[in-house]
């Protein structure tokens, strides 16, 4: 189990361009493929990662490692996150200045940075559907369920999503405060 976790985190650390939230869709994909955790547990892990200090991508890995396999899971997550980071930075630090301005590198980064927002948005959509917030009165198995699935909306969840989105874009209120506020809202509403 821990070896599998280690391999997955090694892979994600090498492929997770964009850091932080860009890694969440990749993690969700792996968790689903290995049938590691339910959608609500996954969402809660991301919530804890977002509330904890430090790099969010690493926090998600650590939280998932703990959830799936206790202390060995954490060690696997720690190693899987730090080893690629150290090796990659070591490898490129020496010639980075030259490499980063190379047109081929720039063009690839342009492509990566273009698709990553789409993938992250997909992760948000999927997390919302899997937790029955919208468009999912039946389980989401294929993408088509987004369109042909019944148009179920959980009003309370959608209201919270809307308010938090407005707060994030229009104010500078700290995300942690928003998470705490939404917990209070949850206690009052559900």
């Amino acid at each position: 189990m821990s070896f599998e976790l280690l391999m997955v985190f090694l892979k994600l650390s090498l492929l997770g361009f964009g850091g932080g939230y860009a890694i969440i869709p990749l993690v969700m994909d792996e968790v689903e493929a290995h049938n590691w955790a339910s959608a609500d547990k996954m969402a809660d892990t991301v919530a804890i990662a977002a509330m904890s200090p430090g790099p969010v991508a690493a926090n998600v890995a650590i939280g998932l490692g703990l959830l799936l396999n206790g202390l060995p899971g954490i060690i696997a997550a720690f190693a899987g996150t730090t080893i690629p980071c150290v090796v990659v930075v070591w490898a490129v630090a020496a010639f980075f200045k030259k490499a980063s301005s190379h047109p081929v590198v720039q063009d690839i980064l342009y492509g990566l940075k273009s698709v990553i927002p789409g993938i992250i948005f997909f992760a948000a959509l999927k997390m919302g559907m899997q937790n029955n917030m919208f468009l999912a009165s039946k389980p989401i198995t294929t993408g088509w369920d987004v369109i042909i699935g019944s148009s179920h909306f959980d009003g309370k969840s959608v209201i919270i999503i809307g308010i938090i989105m407005v707060m994030l874009t229009k104010t500078k209120v700290h995300p942690i405060l928003l998470i705490i506020a939404s917990a209070v809202a949850g206690i009052l509403m559900f």
């Binding site: 932080g20 939230y21 860009a22 969440i24 609500d40 969402a43 809660d44 991301v46 919530a47 977002a50 927002p117 789409g118 992250i120 948005f121 992760a123 948000a124 959509l125 997390m127 919302g128 937790n131 917030m133 309370k156 969840s157 959608v158 919270i160 999503i161 809307g162 938090i164 989105m165 994030l168 874009t169 995300p175 928003l178 998470i179 939404s182 917990a183 209070v184 809202a185 949850g186 206690i187 509403m189 559900f190």
Partner: peptide, 17 residues
């Protein structure tokens, strides 16, 4: 509380996007 937090997480991820 977690039923309230989960939509907030969805919003956080969408905002990151």
């Amino acid at each position: 509380a977690f039923l309230g937090i989960r939509p907030a997480v969805v919003a956080l991820i969408a905002y990151a996007a």
